[in-house]
Computed example of a mutant assay.
Amino acid sequence: MGRDKGLVDYHGTPQREYLYHLLKEVCDSVFLSIRSEQLQETPPSFNTIVDQNEYKGPFNGISSAFNAHSNVGWLIIACDLPFMDLPSLQQLVGKRNPGKSATAFKNPNTGNPEPLCCIWEPNGLQEAMNFLKNSDYPSPKQFLMDAEILLVQPKNEQALFNANSLSDYDFVKSKLKEQERG
Results as ranks from 00 to 15, higher is better:
L92K: 06
N134F: 01
S101G: 07
F66K: 00
I77V: 15
N112I: 06
W120V: 01
P113D: 07
S165W: 04
G99D: 06
G57S: 11
E157I: 00
W120T: 08
W74K: 05
Y169M: 12
F143E: 04
L86Q: 08
L132C: 09
K5E: 14
S64N: 03
L7S: 09
T103I: 03
S45Y: 11
L166F: 14
Q40R: 15
N134W: 03
E37P: 03
L132Q: 13
N164Y: 13
P82Y: 05
D28T: 08
K106V: 14
G124L: 00
P154F: 05
Q179F: 13
N97I: 01
F31P: 07
Q153L: 08
D80T: 02
N130F: 00
P87K: 07
F131S: 03
G99A: 05
I77R: 04
Q153S: 12
E41V: 11
S165R: 07
S135C: 04
F66P: 00
N134K: 11
R16D: 10
K100V: 02
L32N: 14
N156A: 08
P14D: 08
L86D: 06
Q91G: 00
S174L: 09
S101P: 03
Y10L: 01
C79D: 15
V30S: 09
S29W: 06
E25R: 09
V50K: 13
A68T: 14
C117G: 08
K133E: 14
L32R: 07
G94Y: 03
S101N: 10
Y169C: 14
D85W: 10
D85Q: 11
F59C: 14
Q126P: 05
